[in-house]
Amino acid sequence: MGSVRTNRYSIVSSEEDGMKLATMAVANGFGNGKSKVHTRQQCRSRFVKKDGHCNVQFINVGEKGQRYLADIFTTCVDIRWRWMLVIFCLAFVLSWLFFGCVFWLIALLHGDLDTDYKDDDDKSKVSKACVSEVNSFTAAFLFSIETQTTIGYGFRCVTDECPIAVFMVVFQSIVGCIIDAFIIGAVMAKMAKPKKRNETLVFSHNAVIAMRDGKLCLMWRVGNLRKSHLVEAHVRAQLLKSRITSEGEYIPLDQIDINVGFDSGIDRIFLVSPITIVHEIDEDSPLYDLSKQDIDNADFEIVVILEGMVEATAMTTQCRSSYLANEILWGHRYEPVLFEEKHYYKVDYSRFHKTYEVPNTPLCSARDLAEKKYILSNANSFCYENEVALTSKEEEEDSENGVPESTSTDSPPGIDLHNQASVPLEPRPLRRESEIGSRR
């Protein structure tokens, strides 16, 4: 089982795998120059863009038009607004034209077009017409509009002379109601789609790998820009990579689940303020055997998904993003964004995407760390350097704002901070800030 798991979770494809794949392509008759073999020097295209759209195009789909027309309502909801407006206008105009032609044909076959009612006051002739005051196609078209929109100006009306005319008036009224219901329903469904809710759900630009509770963890940050909550919010993550099976089958995008606390339930989050999602790199993680150097040379993509129900409509929305291997910062942490004021908490989104480097973060893999092949620094050293990194950030910001350097908390000259780390230190809580992250 261990060997199978290692093969499945191998992220960085070796040169031997690339040569094996190329040999397979030639042997199977696919070596026509169009096949692409992804190596370390040639990274694959992003499968999920940063804005959440999937970078996929469908080609050679059989009976595409028929399949889309069979699900016309979903098609109308998914198309762009400009095409929705075109369909909206065409549906009414074509129905008016169709029934206008029908009423014109009825008048033509009944002989109503030969009668001039402007110079004739004989009401008996008017009563013999199928539709009064309809003696041309324009008049028939206007009567069709008046019937379907129930305008009723009063000059044109159907008589009991022709039952077919009466039937067409009733039929057009029913068709008009159906068109109204369909168009209004599609427009309302399109307006109520929770897709735009994703514009106020954000992911951090970069993911980070750092120590948390004595273990290497992959972390990324999510935030909600609205005050309205995302009900039943939960997160998922998958690692996408290519691999070759033991039988020699090439899988271009193998999807591997990344555990973010599904078993323990901590994948469900209360997204009021930005939260750091934590994936513990343990023996079940696809990143277990990867060191910093392996991450730098790897070719994979981590897709992160945030799902929840919109509070206003109770409709489920899904926000997506992805991180390539070069977008994962090893040995970094996110800057705090949640600050405790006197009577409330304040979230500073200008710090949302910012990170700071944490010294002495192990550069080895989580496996080597678990097997004690890498000796961690003293816990006080880690905490102290973590505090120094934050303090230096604040000093830089104070210097930019014009604060005198004498007010900063610099260490005395001639003292090495790293050498001082081995000395037991008193706890130094942050002056006014605390970061709330997901705790395992």
Rank of each mutant, 00 (worst) to 15 (best):
I415Y: 03
I295M: 04
K195D: 09
K128E: 04
L69T: 10
C364P: 01
G31R: 04
K393E: 09
I415K: 11
H38K: 14
L218T: 02
F88T: 10
G265S: 11
D17H: 08
F182I: 05
K128Q: 14
E327W: 02
V423T: 12
L306N: 02
K128V: 15
L142P: 02
H38W: 04
S127K: 11
R67C: 10
I258L: 13
L21F: 09
K241Q: 10
G33S: 11
T147D: 02
Q66H: 13
I275N: 07
N28Q: 08
S228L: 08
S365V: 00
V169Q: 03
V187R: 02
Y384S: 09
S13D: 10
E327P: 01
D213K: 15
E371K: 07
P359L: 08
C364L: 05
F352E: 00
D282I: 06
V48E: 01
T75E: 07
C130V: 01
W83A: 03
W220E: 00
G33W: 04
S246V: 10
T39A: 09
V169H: 04
V12A: 15
I72T: 15
L225N: 10
E397M: 08
P412T: 13
G18E: 05
Q255S: 07
I375N: 11
L108I: 07
S136G: 14
E283A: 13
P427H: 08
G265K: 10
K372D: 13
V131W: 02
G65R: 13
P413A: 12
P413W: 07
E394M: 07
D17R: 05
R351H: 15
A314M: 15
P404V: 09
Y323F: 10
A298L: 11
M168H: 03
F73V: 14
K49I: 05
L94H: 01
Y323W: 09
S392M: 07
E146R: 04
W104V: 10
L376E: 15
S132T: 14
G402Q: 13
Q172M: 11
S173E: 02
R40Y: 10
D257K: 06
I328N: 01
D284A: 14
Q255F: 07
S285G: 01
A129L: 13
S95E: 02
A91E: 05
A186K: 12
V26W: 04
V278Q: 04
F92E: 02
R221C: 00
K36T: 14
T147G: 03
L390K: 11
I251F: 15
R236T: 10
S10N: 08
T317L: 09
V304C: 10
E199S: 12
P274K: 00
A22L: 02
K292W: 05
A186C: 10
K227G: 08
Y288V: 00
Y334P: 03
S14N: 07
T75V: 05
S228W: 13
E16A: 08
A312T: 03
A140E: 00
T115N: 03
M315V: 07
S132M: 07
S322R: 00
C157F: 11
Y68P: 09
S10F: 04
S14E: 10
P404R: 07
K354R: 09
I269D: 04
G248R: 05
I184Q: 04
R46E: 02
V169D: 01
C130E: 02
V126E: 04
G414A: 12
F30G: 13
D282C: 08
I436C: 13
S95A: 15
I151C: 03
I244G: 14
A91D: 03
I184K: 08
S242Y: 09
C162W: 00
K20G: 07
H353E: 12
V131F: 06
P163D: 02
N378C: 07
N135Y: 12
F167P: 02
L271V: 09
T115W: 04
H353M: 04
W83V: 03
D294A: 11
E385I: 05
A366G: 07
R351T: 15
D267C: 05
R67M: 06
L390Y: 09
L290D: 02
A210S: 12
K118R: 13
V222P: 00
L240R: 03
L230I: 12
C130Y: 02
V187Y: 07
V170T: 07
L216S: 02
A192M: 15
N198W: 05
F103G: 01
L239V: 12
Y68T: 10
I277S: 02
Y349F: 09
V56S: 14
S10R: 06
A312I: 09
E357M: 07
M188I: 06
S3G: 06
L108V: 13
L94C: 05
F88A: 09
D257W: 08
V187L: 08
T115Y: 07
V61W: 08
V126N: 04
S173R: 04
D368A: 07
K227E: 05
R351G: 15
R431F: 14
Q255A: 06
D114I: 13
D122F: 03
N32C: 09
D180R: 10
S273Y: 10
V260N: 00
R44D: 14
S434D: 15
L108H: 15
T316A: 12
L21C: 06
I375H: 13
N401G: 08
N60V: 05
S285C: 00
I145D: 01
R221K: 01
H353Y: 03
E15K: 03
F182P: 02
Q41C: 06
R320Y: 09
R243I: 06
L239W: 08
R236F: 04
D254M: 10
K128N: 08
E397Q: 08
L240V: 10
I145N: 01
L97D: 00
I266A: 09
H53C: 09
D122T: 01
F339Q: 15
K346T: 04
V93P: 01
R243C: 05
K292I: 02
T75L: 04
R197I: 11
R212A: 05
A192V: 14
Y117R: 01
V131Q: 01
